[in-house]
Design a protein around this nucleic acid. Structure first.
Lengths: 234, 234, 234, 234
DNA sequence: CATGAATGAGTCTTCATTCAT
DNA sequence: CATGAATGAAGACTCATTCAT
C-alpha cells in the first residue's frame, strides 16, 4: 500500500538536488514517487465519481480501473480491496470537512456572523461545489460492512467532538454560565443532524442552487442559535 | 399487503344459500387468507431482523427463507424481488413512524409539553423499543438502488411535510404572526435532521438506555423550541 | 389425462336421451364431458397463442393458465406436463395439415391446376390464416427435448410419406413410366422443404399478404412441377 | 473474435529500439494473443458439441466450461452471455456455409455439373462431415429468443440473397431471357428450402451415409434444374 | 375435480480478488 | 511495478411440478 504520500514532497525534491551521485537515482525515484501519488489520487477520484453516480455496489473495480486508465491489478496495488477505497474516500472527505469547519470554528464566538460563516463554508464550499463528496459521505458510505460502519461512526463522532469542543471553548471565553442546562454534546449532535439533513434534502434530493444557499444559511443559523441559547439558559 | 384475492361476490351470494356449507367455506377461505397474511409478515419480520443485524447486502434470500421457515420460492411468491422486501419494510416503518408522530402532532401546540410528548414517542416507542426498524429506516435503506432511494426520499419528504403542516396549523391557531420570517419547511427539515442524528448517535452507535431518554428528550426539545422561536421572531 | 375426447360426442348425446334413469346422470355427465373438452381446448388454444407470440420457453404454465382462465393445477389435469402441451399442439396442427393436403392430394393429377390447389390450400388456408400454428409447427417445436424432436420427426416423415404415396398413385394412374429415375421420396422431401421455407420466409419473417399468395403459389408450383418432370424423365 | 486489444502503436515503436527485447515482447504478446484466440475457439467448440448433442437449453454454462477446461467466469470473459455463444456459433457456421457455396456459385453456370458441385459441397463437406454444425444451424438456433431469431433470419436471408444474385448473374451471362416470368428470389428460397429439408431429413434424422450422397445430389440437382428451367420459361 | 400456494432444484450471471508473465 | 486473463464462490431468480384443502 502507498505509504500515505502526504509528506512535503516539494521539500524532498529540493534536497535531492544537492547530492551528486544520488541525482539520477533521486530523479527517477522522485518521478516514480510523484507518479505513484498521482495514480493513487486518480484512482480515488475515479472511484469518487462512480460511487457518487452509480452507487458503491453497482460500481465494479474494472469500471474504476477503466476510468482511471489503469489495470484492475493496479487498483489492488494501491488499495487493499474495494472497501478500502471507500474508507479512504470517506476519510479524505471527513478530513476535508473537519478542516473546513475547524478553521471557522477557531475564530467563532456566539455571534450570528461567525455561525453564518460556518454555514456558508459548509453549504457553499462543500455541498454545492462537491456534490460527489456529499453523496459519498452522507449516502454511499452508509449501510456497508461493519468495518466501514465503524469508521464512519468514528468520523461522525470526531466531527461532533470538534463542534462540542468549540462550544465549550467559546462558552468558557464568555465566562458566564457553565450552568447546569448546558449540554455541549447534544448541541453538537443536533447541529450535525441539522446540517446532514439540510445537505441531503436540499443538495442531494432537491437540487438547490447558489441562490438558495443564502436563505438556507440564514435560517438554519437562526434556528441553531436560538436552540443553543435556549439550552444554555436551561 | 398480499394482493387480496378478488372475492367473486356473486359466487359468494349463490353459495350463501346453504348456511352450513357457506360457513365452512368462509372458514377455510378466511383461514387461508389469514395464513397468507401471517406468512407475509413472517417473511417481512425475518428480513427485518437479518437486514438490521447483517446488513441488506450480506443477507441472502435463502437466509430470509430459512429464518421464516419457508422455501426461497415462497419469498418470491410474496415479494417481487429482494429490493421489494426492503421497500415494503421501509414503507411499513415509515407509515408507523408517521402514525406515531401524527397522533402527537394532532394535539400539539407550542407548549413544551406537547413537544416533549413527540420526543418521547419517537425516542421511547421507536428508537429504544424497535432498534431493527431504526437500523433499516436510517441505515440499511440508504445507498441502495435508485428505485429504493426514490422511495426513501419520498418517505422523508412526507415526514417533513407532516411536521411542516403541523407547524403551519399551530401557528395559525396562535393567530399571532404568520409573519415573514417563518420558514416551516426549513424548520421541519431541521427537526427531522435533529431526530435522525439523535437516533443514529444515541441508539444505533452508542447504546443509550431508558435512563438517557428523559435527558435527551428534554434537551432536544429545548433546543428545537428555541430554534423555532428564534426563527418565528425572524 | 383426458381420454382423447375425439368421439362423436353429438351421437352420444342423442343416445342418452332414450335411457330413463340415466337421464339425469347422463345430462350432468355429458355436460361435464363437454365442459372438459372445452377446457382442454381452451388451454390448448391459450398455449398456442402464447407459444407463438412469446416462444415456448418464455411462456410459463401460469401464463397459460391465466389466459385460459383456469388454475395451474387444472393444466396438469389435462396435460401430463408442459412438453405434453407442445406435443399435443404439434399433433393437432400436423393432423390438420395432413387433412388439408390429403383432401387435395386425393383429387390430384399431374395437372398444373391440381398442384395449384394444393399450394393455395397450404398458403391461404394455413400460412396466411393461422400464423400461430405456422410458428409452432415450423419454429417453436424445433430444438426441444429428444421426445419432442422424435414426434416432430415422425410428423414430418408422415407428411412426406403422404406426398410420396400420392405421387406413386398418380404416377401409376398415368401408367406411363415407372422408369428408373423416378424418386418419389426425394420429390416429397423437396416439396416439403420448398413449402416449409416459403412458409418461414414469406409468412413468418416477411409478412406477406393475401395479394402475394397468388404469385407465390403460381411460381412455386411451376418450380415444383418442373422439378418433378425433370426427375421423372430421369 | 476476441476484442483485439488496442496495440499502443507508439509504445511498440519506442520498444523496438532494442532488437532482442522487442522480439521477446512480441513473442510473448503474440503468444498470449494466440492463446486467447485458442481459448475462444475451445469454448466455442465445446459449446458446439454440447448444443448439438444435448440441445441448447439442456446445456449449462458450467458444462461448457468443464468441457473447455476453463472456469465459468472465463466463458463470460469471452462471451457476453449464453445466447451470445449461440449467436457467434450461428454466424461462424453461416459464414462457413456462405463461403462454401460462394466459391462454387462463382464458377457456376446452368450446367448440370456446376450444380452438382454445389450439391456435393453442401452434402459432403457440410452435412456429412460436420453434423454438429448442421444440428446447430438448422435445429438448435431455431425457436430461441427474438434476438437469436432476428440474426438467424438475417443469415438465411443473406444465404438466399447469395443464391439469388448468382442466378441473376448466370442468367445475364446466358444473355437469353431476362424474360418476365423469372423469379430469382423465389427460386433461391426454394433451393434453400430443398437443401434445408434434405439436410434435416437425410442427415439429422435418418443417418445417411457417404453412399447415399451421390444419389441425393444427382436427384436433387435434377429436381432443381428442372424447376428453374420451368420458371424461366415462365 | 379445481385450486393456487408452496416447493426447491437448477442456472445464469456477477465481480472481487489473485497471480503468472 | 503493471497488466489483464482467469478464477470460482456466491446469489438472485425462475418455474415446472406437486398436493393439501
Amino acid at each position: 500500500m502507498v505509504s500515505h504520500p502526504r509528506k512535503g514532497s516539494t521539500a524532498e525534491i529540493r534536497m535531492a538536488k544537492t547530492k551528486s551521485q544520488d541525482r539520477s537515482m533521486s530523479r527517477s525515484a522522485l518521478r516514480r514517487l510523484r507518479e505513484k501519488e498521482i495514480r493513487y489520487n486518480t484512482i480515488l477520484k475515479a472511484a469518487e465519481n462512480l460511487f457518487a453516480k452509480k452507487g458503491y455496489h453497482r460500481t465494479s473495480i474494472e469500471e474504476i480501473a477503466d476510468l482511471a486508465e489503469v489495470s484492475t491489478g493496479a487498483v489492488y496495488f494501491y488499495f487493499k480491496n474495494k472497501e478500502d477505497i471507500l474508507i479512504k474516500l470517506m476519510h479524505e472527505i471527513g478530513h476535508q470537512l473537519r478542516k473546513l469547519l475547524g478553521e471557522e470554528l477557531q475564530k467563532a464566538d456566539f455571534s450570528f456572523d461567525s455561525f453564518q460563516n460556518i454555514a456558508f463554508a459548509f453549504l457553499r464550499d462543500f455541498c454545492l461545489s462537491q456534490p460527489e463528496k456529499l453523496a459519498i459521505f452522507f449516502r454511499e458510505s452508509a449501510g456497508r460492512s461493519s468495518e466501514v460502519e465503524e469508521q464512519r461512526k468514528q468520523l461522525f463522532i470526531d466531527l461532533t467532538q470538534d463542534i462540542k469542543e468549540a462550544f465549550i471553548r467559546i462558552n468558557e471565553e464568555r465566562e458566564k454560565n457553565s450552568v447546569s442546562g448546558f449540554a455541549p454534546e447534544l448541541i453538537a449532535v443536533c447541529i450535525v443532524g441539522v446540517y446532514e439533513r439540510i445537505a441531503c434534502h436540499y443538495f442531494l434530493w432537491k437540487e438547490s442552487s447558489k441562490e438558495d444557499v443564502e436563505d438556507i444559511a440564514q435560517k438554519s443559523v437562526s434556528f441553531m442559535l436560538g436552540g443553543i441559547e435556549s439550552l444554555i439558559k436551561g
